[in-house]
C-alpha cells in the first residue's frame, strides 16, 4: 500500500476529532497561562498543577466512587499549588520561573511519593462523554462534537467565556491593566496584588480541569509524570496565540493534528518508529517557538512583582 493510497483512505473528520480531544489538556493549560500571565504572573507551574490534579482526581474519584467529586478535588488541589505559586511570586517576590519550577518539582515529588506509597491498582470511574444519538449522526459536526469527552466541551466553552471575560468585562479590563502597568491600576484604585492572586487561582482551576482529563477521561489510572510536558506545550500555544484565548486554542491543534495523523498512518500499517513519532509535539513546539516568539508581545509587566 503506498502513502498516497493511505492518505486518501484516512478519515479526516475522525482525525480532527482525535486532535480536538488530544488538545483538551493543552488548551486548558494555555487558558490558565493566559489568565495568570495577562495579570503579570509567569506560570511555568501549570505542568505541576495538572499533574497534582490528575493524581487527586484519580485518588478521590476512586475513594468517593464519583468522578465529579474527584474533579472538584483535583481542581482544588491544583488551586492550592496555584496559591503557593501566587504566594511565592506576589508576596515573597521569588523569581517566577523558579517558583513555577518549584511547583513542578513539588508536584512530581508528592504525587510520586503517594503513588508509590498507596499504589494505583483500582481504576477510577470515568467522566461521561457528551453523546447524543441523533446529533451524533450529523455528518462532520456529529463526529467532531457529539461523541466527545465532557471536558472537551468544557474546554470549548471556557475558550469562549475567557475571550468575553478578558475583553468585555470590568474584570478583564482590570486584569489586563494589572499585567500591563500595575502602577496605573493601583493609582486607579485597583488592588493589584489581589487581582493577581485571583487570576493565578483561576489559572490553577483551569490547570486542574486539564489534569482531570488524564485520569478521568484518557485512562482511569494514574502513572507518575503522566502529564508529560503538556503544560509546557500549552504555554507554547499561549505564546503562539499572543496571550489570546481563541488563537491559543487554535494553536493547540497545531501540536495535536500531526500526531493524530501519524497515529492514523500507523494504523494503516505505514512503518514509523513510534518512539520517534511520539516526539512530534515536542519538536513542533520548539519549531513554533523559534519561529514566533519575536513577533509576539507579552504583557509588559510579565514577571515583575509589584512593589509600591
Amino acid at each position: 500500500m503506498d502513502l498516497v493510497d493511505v492518505l486518501l483512505r484516512i478519515d479526516y473528520v475522525f482525525l480532527l476529532a482525535a486532535a480536538l480531544r488530544a488538545a483538551t489538556p493543552i488548551a486548558f493549560a494555555a487558558l490558565g497561562g493566559i489568565f495568570s500571565e495577562r495579570a503579570g504572573v509567569i506560570n511555568i507551574g501549570l505542568e505541576g498543577m495538572m499533574l497534582i490534579s490528575a493524581y487527586v482526581c484519580y485518588r478521590v474519584a476512586v475513594l468517593a466512587a464519583s468522578p465529579a467529586v474527584g474533579l472538584v478535588a483535583g481542581m482544588a488541589a491544583a488551586m492550592v499549588l496555584a496559591g503557593l505559586h501566587g504566594l511565592f511570586s506576589i508576596r515573597y517576590q521569588t523569581n517566577q520561573v523558579v517558583s513555577g519550577t518549584v511547583v513542578n518539582i513539588f508536584a512530581a515529588g508528592i504525587t510520586g511519593f503517594l503513588f508509590r506509597a498507596l499504589g494505583a491498582q483500582e481504576s477510577a470511574p470515568y467522566l461521561p462523554n457528551i453523546s447524543h444519538p441523533l446529533l451524533k449522526s450529523i455528518p462532520v459536526i456529529g463526529t467532531l462534537l457529539f461523541d466527545q469527552p465532557l471536558l472537551m466541551w468544557v474546554m470549548l466553552i471556557v475558550v469562549v467565556v475567557a475571550t468575553v471575560v478578558l475583553f468585555r468585562t470590568p474584570w478583564g479590563l482590570r486584569t489586563r491593566a494589572v499585567g500591563e502597568l500595575p502602577r496605573a491600576a493601583d493609582t486607579a484604585g485597583i488592588p493589584v496584588n489581589r487581582m493577581r492572586y485571583l487570576n493565578v487561582l483561576i489559572s490553577g482551576a483551569l490547570a486542574g480541569l486539564g489534569g482531570a482529563f488524564f485520569t478521568l477521561h484518557t485512562v482511569s489510572t494514574f502513572t507518575p509524570l503522566m502529564t508529560s510536558g503538556q503544560g509546557f506545550i500549552g504555554l507554547a500555544a499561549m505564546i503562539f496565540g499572543n496571550w489570546t484565548p481563541i488563537p491559543a486554542f487554535l494553536a493547540t491543534l497545531l501540536f495535536t493534528l500531526p500526531q493524530a495523523l501519524a497515529g492514523q498512518l500507523q494504523m494503516f500499517g505505514v512503518p514509523l518508529p513510534y518512539q520517534l513519532l511520539s516526539t512530534l509535539p515536542y519538536l513542533l513546539t520548539i519549531i513554533t517557538l523559534a519561529g514566533v516568539v519575536r513577533r509576539s508581545t507579552p504583557p509588559a509587566a510579565l514577571g515583575t512583582p509589584y512593589v509600591k
Binding site: R174, R176, A177, E180, A184, A185, G189
Partner: peptide, 15 residues
C-alpha cells in the same frame, strides 16, 4: 499612569 495598550476611555474608567 496610563496603560498604553488600552484606549483613552478604558484608561479613564479603569476602576
Amino acid at each position: 499612569m496610563l496603560v498604553p495598550t488600552l484606549t483613552v476611555t478604558e484608561n479613564i474608567i479603569l476602576g
